[in-house]
Amino acid sequence: MIPALTIKNLSKVYDNGFEALKGISLTVEQGDFYALLGPNGAGKSTTIGIVCSLVSKTDGQVQVFDADIDEDFPAAKKYIGIVPQEFNFNMFETAFDIVVNQGGYYGMPVKLARQRAEKYLKELGLWDKRAVATRTLSGGMKRRLMIARALVHQPKLLILDEPTAGVDIEMRRSMWDFLQKINAEGTTIILTTHYLEEAEALCRHIGIINHGEIVEDTSIRELLRRLQREVFILDSVEDLPEDLSLPGFVARRIDAHSMEVEVEKGQHINQVFAALDAQGIHVSSMRNRANRLEEMFVSLVEGAA
């Protein structure tokens, strides 16, 4: 099956001489939910900008399904729906007009564009706001509007550049559910995000870009499998002794009812419970000290620095 997106040796040097991309290559398979991660200025938005024609590439090849952007960019554009990082619509127009007009730009008949606008505005909870000037919408509503606009021509590849930035937790969760639904229906999704929890929850594959180079391109499962160490915080029912020690583990007492335990690769959390049980200590709750992907991300980015 032909990949949804194939990037080969893509480079970009801006007019001021800044080399944003240094010959990156990556492949996103059809139906995938792919996370493109990287610190600010790493080259994520430049990559996305080139794929959807807002940035001119310096060199390299980009193919969207069967369409090479150098040979048939209009065909490639038809496959893509883009949700940019910044709000990029006319704040004086209504949500309905914005979505319908976008359908028109893709050559859709007005009637069909109106039907699709209704469908996606309803699915994204914006139907009640369809006739108001978009400047009056909240930040979360504006982000959902950009998703509705990107979907009006039913693209096979949806690219979202930090879609949940500045969105509250409840809204973020409902956006996750929506994205998972359309991914399950067959839309390939590429997502950039600063919320690594988001990438871990949604995505199956991940590419990490830093200083214009891909430093990792693999499945999230494989990435997490490589994690050497995890730190857990355990809350106890009983008071913890001042001289807390767990043989074989690095453990630290935080306060009378909580402790921090490092579990190395090859060790099991059950061993921690057994050692605590032997001391008459029972665990009431447990959590990761930090997001697992975040630890891996930091180590990869720092390692490449």
Binding site: S53, L54, P74, I82, N88, F89, N90, N101, Y106
Partner: peptide, 18 residues
């Protein structure tokens, strides 16, 4: 210029409209 200023020109630039 307004569409350049508020970036809504990108709606057209990302579309296949010639």
């Amino acid at each position: 210029f307004g569409s350049k200023f508020n970036h809504s020109v990108e709606e057209l630039l990302v579309s296949p409209t010639p």
